[in-house]
């Protein structure tokens, strides 16, 4: 465990010392604040558009952070050859992979925590209303989402050699799933035949990332979700992240390093 957390620590340190996350954070804050200062019929209580803009930017940033942090890990270690001194130590490749996962996931969670604080601040000032339990649910589901994405990206990074092709493929899968995942079944029913079976197969086998996006519930102040549903989502995310990670470890273990 110490080995895994040591690897994770380096990943987190790297995220903290690179500027990318700060740029995304300040961009989100800046755009939200600028839009928040727009005068709309002299009504200062209008808040939902601002919440939507802020959350949407947060979601985009989080996808970018998760994919690009995870996609870099193994290829950069290969390229700068730091993988050699690391693997020459008594550490298994699975431990390295798990450490990378833990590091990327925690890095995502840390940046998400900062983003959600910003969001709670902005929406709280606007609405004079702090549904912290709801925000926590959204934050936790967002973290789970990042976990699946990180695991998927790590799996991609031991499969595809180029960082950019891996990132592009994972990004399009993630965005596609977020936007279409809910509807795949309807499309499958309409398509029918072999295509229908294929789409239904995707529908039932791919992780439903759109579940973890509860932006609309937060924006429109819907009541808090049932905690059992959050619990089920947690198990669901763990199952998928676990599968992707297991595959990634299996592949990484068999790969020659040169």
């Amino acid at each position: 465990m110490q080995k895994i957390s040591a690897v994770a620590g380096v990943v987190i340190l790297e995220m903290i010392r690179r500027k990318d996350v700060y740029v995304l954070f300040f961009l989100t804050a800046l755009i939200t604040l600028v839009l928040g200062s727009v005068d709309l019929f002299g009504d200062a209580k209008i808040a939902r558009y601002l919440k939507e803009v802020c959350l949407t930017l947060m979601w985009m940033s989080s996808v970018i952070i998760a994919v690009f942090t995870a996609a870099r890990q193994i290829p950069v270690e290969r390229e700068s050859r730091t993988l050699f001194p690391l693997l020459a130590k008594p550490i298994t490749r699975s431990e390295v992979m798990l450490g990378k996962f833990l590091g990327c996931w925690l890095a995502c969670c840390i940046s998400l925590a900062a983003f959600y604080l910003l969001f709670a601040l902005i929406s709280g000032i606007r609405e004079q209303h702090w549904p912290l339990a709801n925000y926590f649910q959204a934050f936790w589901l967002h973290c789970l989402f990042s976990g699946i994405v990180v695991a998927l990206t790590l799996l991609g990074s031991v499969w595809f050699t180029a960082v950019s092709s891996n990132a592009t493929i994972v990004l399009s899968c993630v965005v596609g799933m977020l936007l279409l995942g809910r509807h795949l079944h309807k499309v499958a029913v309409k398509a029918g035949g072999i295509a229908g079976h294929f789409l239904d197969g995707l529908y039932f086998s791919l992780p439903h990332l759109e579940w973890f996006d509860v932006r609309d519930l937060i924006i429109h102040n819907w009541p808090r979700m049932d905690w059992t549903i959050v619990g089920q989502d947690t198990l669901y995310a763990c199952a998928y992240a676990g599968c992707f990670l297991a595959l990634a470890c299996w592949r990484f273990r068999r790969q020659p390093i040169h």
Binding site: R182, H185, W211, D213, V214, D216, L217, M225, I229
Partner: peptide, 17 residues
Amino acid sequence: LGTVANWVDGHGRNHFP
């Protein structure tokens, strides 16, 4: 949304209005 088609659909409906 139609009637709940399957468990994915049913569970998913908890996550959006």
